[in-house]
Nucleic acid binder design. Structure first.
Lengths: 149, 149
DNA sequence: TAGCTTTCTTAGAATGATTATTGATCTCAT
DNA sequence: ATGAGATCAATAATCATTCTAAGAAAGCTA
């Protein structure tokens, strides 16, 4: 498994992106976070490096970084957006019990969009896929907490 | 193709659901809508039948109907939730240009969640899948509007 | 059927995430 | 240097949704 290790699989900085101190910190914070933080969580972590940064700026920076292909925005239902610096092809697994979000990488090259019958002449440009369930830790917790009745 | 025709593929009313006039109207409105309306759109359409109904009641009724398996809630990014009375297995195709939402039914029995490598011991209970792109109408519009440059 | 309990509905307030506004500051190509 | 355009911070505004409180309706129970 190829993880999103620092220095690997990082997209080059787009030439048209002015990398301001705030944007750099927001980018670094998300890259250093393996828990898919929300904008508010990014804000709190960024403040440790740039105490004067504002939440609005964090939102602006996140938007800009997503628009320039340096971050992914992860949405589940209508909960707060989360952000992810792993730009490799992958989807997210959300634990319904503890809320953790984990990356899940594709095993095959299967062209997934062909699995459904689309209106004739449609052009698919993007797939939004999320897996939900119970993470290994919560499965274990449940097993010890409530043994077979 | 089996459409969601009235009288076909409709789940039986759950015994533990009190079918109040408001809930019945909300259910009927969504069943009669083929455009996946938002809560506010359902509210406006329901008012034609029950002028005194409130938006909060529409939200309550939609929640209850979803919880009882009579409607599906459709989320894309952080836009308003939309509602769907087609309870057959399907996903949604969203046109990024006109915003239309169309049902797309599975072609095969492929166990989709096996396409990704999940944390060892995870238990997947749900798949959230949306297809995005350009619908046939907008593809046509684009072709006539801006011919090959 | 009367009385009691629970559920449902309504209007309006509250929440929470996000976006818009505004004025100040910064950057970079002239 | 300078002036246009980008970015920033603080704050206000927006928007979908949820909460609250009080009244209305429906369901039991005697």
């Amino acid at each position: 498994m190829k993880a999103n290790l620092p220095g690997h699989d990082e997209p080059a900085l787009p030439a048209d992106l002015r990398m301001t101190p705030q944007r750099a910190v927001v980018h670094e914070v998300v890259k250093a976070s393996y828990d898919h933080p929300t904008a508010t969580e990014v804000f709190m972590r960024a403040k440790e490096h740039v105490p004067a940064i504002s939440l609005a700026t964090v939102y602006n920076c996140l938007d800009t970084l997503v628009a320039h292909g340096l971050l992914k925005q992860v949405n589940l239902d209508r909960a707060s957006s989360r952000f992810c610096a792993n730009m490799n092809d992958h989807v997210h697994f959300h634990c319904d019990q503890c809320g953790a979000v984990a990356d899940a990488h594709p095993i095959s090259e299967m062209p997934i969009s062909t699995l459904w019958k689309l209106p004739e002449g449609s052009r698919v440009t993007r797939l939004d896929i999320a897996l939900r369930g119970i993470c290994p830790e919560c499965v274990k917790k449940n097993a010890t907490a409530k043994p077979q009745v």
